[in-house]
Design a protein around this nucleic acid. Structure first.
Length: 396
RNA sequence: GGGUGGAUGGCAGAGUGGCCUAAUGCACCUGACUGUAAAUCAGGCGUCUUCGGACUUCGGCGGUUCAAAUCCGUCUCCACCCA
């Protein structure tokens, strides 16, 4: 029993983890049987989670499964500042209403992994807005400007002559003070959060608490191999439809298969090894895609997505349940219809696609940009590019 | 407070009176090859088009000129140096 627990803990401290501070201490805490306060922060601006973020959620789930208390910290005060670790933008002030709405959306999405009923939600504006210059000054005294600007991303921005706002300096102070208020035992974050996470330790010590342990997760790569980030548009989103999600996983480079298995699923390590030894990496990838879809949409949907993928792309059949877009007029130019159906950005784009041979109806390539669609095309499927299918319907 | 430089397409970044819808790279789209992978190759990448063209774009506004991304004025924003 105890051995079982220990190996579980070891996996928690390793799988997908880039660094733990202080690892031995955290392991001791986890073995002690004490219910730990596990803090993790969310930025209330973007509720569209991707599976890179889910790496964190899966880890939280592991903690939750061991009976620890997850505390979701909504950064309604920090969000205004804009975190330096992440993007280089400063963010607009959000109304309480919007914050609440975003939080709800977040929890809903996180609920695909976590048991949200057991999560405690707190808002950092509740205490951060109380602080005055004296307090902030006292906190700020714990850090030097040198530490701040020698962070890689700040340094880079400075070197490139980009603007670094003075108020960004405040961000780690705030995040650190959050830990003090929550008396957090552990904080989770991406490894790009290192500085902010460590600020919590410093401040907690200043306030006479024992410093939280910090668990940093790897940032996974996106579908194009670069860091997965909303601003790159290379994400696989938790809310993606099963077909789409499956397809996106299939489009990742082979070299990422293992990384995804390790971080985005809980396939056991032994099984991963087996899968990696398969002759055709595609098969491992299919398993991976199925597993990921399963987490967010359930087993049934995952199976269906797999079948869809195999028949549509491997066997090049037209999928069964395509999007149906009725035509508004009894007769319509194909380019106009493409625009209406959202498979082209503009008429020019639609024409280009036709001219380049990317459009077909029921398998027959269309080359005439002036092609007119009428009732005789009702029920036929238009294919644009590799993955866009639309069924056209004419109303009588 | 003083000085200098700068703002160009999704991003980076050339261009400093007509040859500029604006080089190049990245991203993106289509096709070929495939495993909807990667890599590679070919084409494309403002809008509209009767495919002849037409119209719109280089931080905002105003001006000079036959002609402005390019010159002048002004405003907004940014960086750097000095204090």
């Amino acid at each position: 029993m105890n051995k079982d627990l220990e190996s579980k803990i070891d996996e928690i401290l390793e799988r997908g983890v880039s660094e733990v501070i202080d690892k031995d201490n955290l392991k001791k805490k986890l073995l002690s049987g004490k219910k730990l306060k596990v803090k993790f922060g969310m930025d209330p601006t973007s509720p569209n989670l991707h599976i890179g973020r889910a790496v964190l959620l899966l880890k939280l789930k592991d903690f939750q499964d061991l009976g620890h208390q997850i505390i979701l910290l909504v950064g309604n005060a920090t969000g205004v500042i804009g975190d330096t670790s992440d993007k280089d933008s400063e963010r607009p002030m959000l109304s309480d209403e919007v914050v609440k709405k975003n939080m709800k959306a977040y929890v809903e999405q996180a609920g695909k992994i976590l048991n949200t009923e057991k999560i405690k939600v707190v808002y950092n504006a509740d205490w951060l807005n109380e602080l005055g210059y004296q307090d902030i000054g006292k906190h700020a005294e714990c850090f030097s400007l040198h530490e701040f600007i020698s962070r890689e991303n700040i340094k880079k921005r400075l070197d490139e002559g980009k603007r670094v706002s003075l108020r960004e300096v405040l961000y780690p102070l705030m995040q650190g003070y959050d830990s003090v208020k929550l008396e957090a035992d552990v904080e989770l974050g991406g490894n790009d959060q290192r500085f902010n996470l460590l600020a919590g330790r410093t401040l907690q010590e200043k306030f006479g608490q024992s410093p939280q342990d910090v668990l940093m997760m790897n940032i996974i790569s996106g579908t194009d191999g670069k860091k997965m980030s909303s601003s790159w548009g290379n994400t696989i989103n938790i809310l993606d439809e099963p077909h789409d999600m499956f397809g996106k996983v299939m489009s990742i480079p082979d070299t990422l298969i293992k990384e995804y298995m390790l971080h985005c699923t809980r396939i056991s390590k032994n099984e991963i090894e087996e899968l990696m030894n398969l002759e055709n990496p595609r098969d491992a990838k299919i398993k991976l895609a199925e597993e990921i879809v399963k987490i967010y949409h359930g087993e049934k949907a995952a199976k269906k997505a797999k079948e869809y993928f195999v028949s549509t792309f491997s066997k090049k059949k037209i999928p069964e349940d395509v999007r149906v877009v009725p035509s508004k007029a009894p007769e319509i130019l194909i380019v106009d219809y493409m625009l209406e159906a959202g498979v082209a950005e503009s008429k020019s784009d639609a024409r280009r696609k036709v001219e380049q041979g990317g459009v077909s109806i029921d398998g027959k390539k269309i080359t005439d940009t002036n092609k007119i669609l009428d009732k005789s095309f009702s029920g036929k499927v238009i294919k644009v590019g590799k993955k866009d299918f639309v069924k056209i319907v004419f109303k009588d």
